[in-house]
Design a protein around this nucleic acid. Structure first.
Lengths: 213, 213
DNA sequence: ATCTCAGTAGTCAAACTTGACTAGGAAGCG
DNA sequence: CGCTTCCTAGTCAAGTTTGACTACTGAGAT
């Protein structure tokens, strides 16, 4: 699963109604162009594709107020909202070591209720532990660890990062249970998008150390 | 950068001459179908593409000895070998949080000399530390941490996993400096491919916990 | 003798991603 | 006023990835 659909659905959903450039700006505001494949082409492609699949509703709209070509506005449908929550839940529970999907999931976690968020994260911890158990058992060579040589270092790295991921997840669960953040149904939600015309304080990105994912 | 080119180049290189199915089997032997996008289509595509680019030399070959369509054998060229080492060095030094590229790099690390491997890994640690410093400085909001709400958890996760990655890398450096494994120019190299006809002891994969990357 | 099944080797269309490109308006400037 | 430059909004071709599909052989079962 790539993070782009979750990101785009979430952005449109928070706006109620949004055109491509607005989504693009939100994703940049969230820094998503740094840690996911949120390039213009991918965003517009995802919008069109999801409109074709009935997850979004496309409205043809008059030429922009601020120059440039005419723009299309999108609205999320019932089925799109379902898909959003399906993707969101999957992003939080499944352990697939791709940081971008998890990052997107965390970004939208407050769209869930607190109890469910905690439950999903516990499921995540369980998934990591299960994965760890199976991988360490499977990759313990019967004829001694030397037999796989440096290849064992690959498994070692996976296990190391799985452990770190589990530990971080446990910390997050603890913070949420201690009352941090405002979740769905708990009053004024956290505002995570730019309103029309608001300037983006994070316009120039985090400096890259190496190639982006 | 995707891991597929590095994997395919490395596989062909270790065989001297290999056809697509052989490469495919090697990658399965290495478990690469679990942690990278090493699907048949991608492998054959990479072979053709790299042949077109002069990194591999394609030989048309008579029908297979064991059923199936005729097969094409590939040989690595001078330029392909250069590309292999370029990709290998990049995979070990750049911090781009995609596990598949690093995994592939570790798989081929013994194709380098010991001193260079250590130097590259040290560079990796430095890259991680630099990234960490810039990201923590950049994402410390001037108007207090509450202002970014749960979004701060995303950065927290990155930093957490960067730290784990740096720690693991330091451990690997220590093991290599202590004399572990056999590197280039140190005698009998580790055999990491299946010979023709040898059966694959890891034919059925590690059980997945969640969607693969 | 023929039928099925597993293994071999690879192709293909559809979907997705990438990075460069277009084209028009607004804003600054000498 | 004419010129350049930036911002807005999006398109496009080329490349890559995916997952399902084809076609062929040999071994064992009926």
């Amino acid at each position: 699963m790539s993070a782009i659909r979750l990101l785009v659905l979430g952005a449109v959903r928070q706006h109620g109604r949004a055109h491509g450039y607005q989504v693009r700006n939100d994703l940049e505001y969230w820094g998503a162009h740094e840690w996911s494949n949120a390039k213009p082409g991918s965003i517009y492609h995802a919008l069109k594709q999801m409109a074709k699949q009935g997850l979004l509703l496309a409205h043809e709209v008059a030429p922009s107020t601020a120059g440039g070509p005419p723009r299309t506005e999108y609205e999320i449908t019932e089925r799109g909202t379902e898909e959003f929550f399906t993707l969101l839940r999957a992003s939080l529970t499944s352990y697939d070591q791709s940081v971008d999907v998890l990052s997107a999931g965390i970004g939208f976690i407050v769209d869930l209720e607190r109890a469910e968020a905690v439950a999903l994260l516990r499921e995540r911890v369980a998934a990591i532990e299960g994965w760890r158990a199976s991988v360490t058992e499977y990759w313990t060579p019967s004829d001694g660890p030397e037999s796989i040589g440096h290849i064992g270092e690959i498994m070692n790295m996976w296990v190391h990062s799985a452990d770190a991921g589990a530990e971080w997840t446990r910390g997050l669960i603890a913070r949420i249970e201690a009352g941090a953040y405002t979740f769905a149904g708990e009053g004024e939600p956290f505002v995570g998008v730019l309103s029309e015309g608001e300037e983006n304080p994070f316009a120039t990105g985090v400096p890259d150390a190496g190639d982006a994912h």
